[in-house]
Design a protein around this nucleic acid. Structure first.
Length: 230
DNA sequence: CCATTAAACACCC
DNA sequence: GGGTGTTTAATGG
């Protein structure tokens, strides 16, 4: 078990829903949140386990994945810094149906489900945040389903990268996203070769390019355009 | 039959 | 040591 600590003011800045809470609610949360380091490859949620916390990424990158009928690995979503996940499982009172694994090491924050439920009961602002998150995610999945049928690997990759390079959370810097081409292949549902080729096309388009062990964003707007054409 | 993919390999960070 | 690019043999539409 990794060592846990409480929330520093530096960490607080990396939680997008914290500022919107009323001060009273915010003080419970800050007291209840636990921060721990996440190492690459670490399994954050196991299939079948009961959720005890709502979990967020302060730094690093985490994936939600499972296996297809033929045994192939399928990644359903990637959560970058600022991402929070597992609320659906908590709300339904179920156990995890997919596994959550760390791709890029970093920091995770955990909010006990009891506090989660209390916020749900008492904070309009928290409900608003969750509703926005559900709405965005639903839109993403519908768009993803549409893209799956109609678009090529280049467009699908552009979409996947757009969700990982969140412009709201990274307004200034043009960071290199640390993710292997194999993981991108799991995410898009194709092979490593296809990803490599698509990265070449994205470079020609001026949207993004392959960096060692990751992808460098060149032009977010351009990446969006590639992902929405068709 | 052609395209795609997984596996194996050798380089490079 | 792990990620990448490339080759090759198998696989599947």
């Amino acid at each position: 078990m990794p060592s846990q600590s409480h929330l520093s003011s530096d960490h607080q800045l990396k939680i997008p829903w914290l500022p919107i809470l009323a001060t009273e609610h915010r003080s419970w949360v800050i007291q209840a949140l636990q921060v721990s380091e996440a190492t690459a490859g670490e399994l954050v949620c196991r299939v079948g386990a009961e959720p005890t916390h709502w979990i967020g990424v302060l730094e690093g990158l985490v994936k939600m994945s499972g296996f297809a009928a033929n045994g192939r690995t399928v990644t359903f979503a990637g959560f970058p810094s600022g991402g929070w996940f597992g609320e659906g499982t908590i709300l339904k009172g179920e156990s995890y149906r997919y596994e959550i694994q760390v791709l890029q090491p970093g920091l995770l924050a955990r909010l006990p489900v009891t506090v989660f439920h209390r916020l749900l009961e008492e904070s309009i602002e928290f409900n608003r945040f969750l509703m926005r998150q559900f709405n965005e995610r639903l839109g993403q999945f519908i768009a993803y389903k549409a893209a799956e049928q109609t678009l090529g690997v280049e467009e699908q990759l552009a979409r996947a990268l757009c969700t990982l390079f969140d412009p709201v959370l990274y307004p200034a810097a043009a960071p290199v996203l640390r993710i292997t081409q194999q993981e991108l292949a799991y995410l898009v549902g194709t092979s490593r070769q296809q990803i490599n080729q698509a990265l070449g096309l994205l470079r020609e388009a001026g949207a993004a390019e392959a960096a060692y062990g990751g992808v460098r964003l060149l032009d977010y707007q351009c990446l969006r355009n590639v992902g929405t054409r068709g």
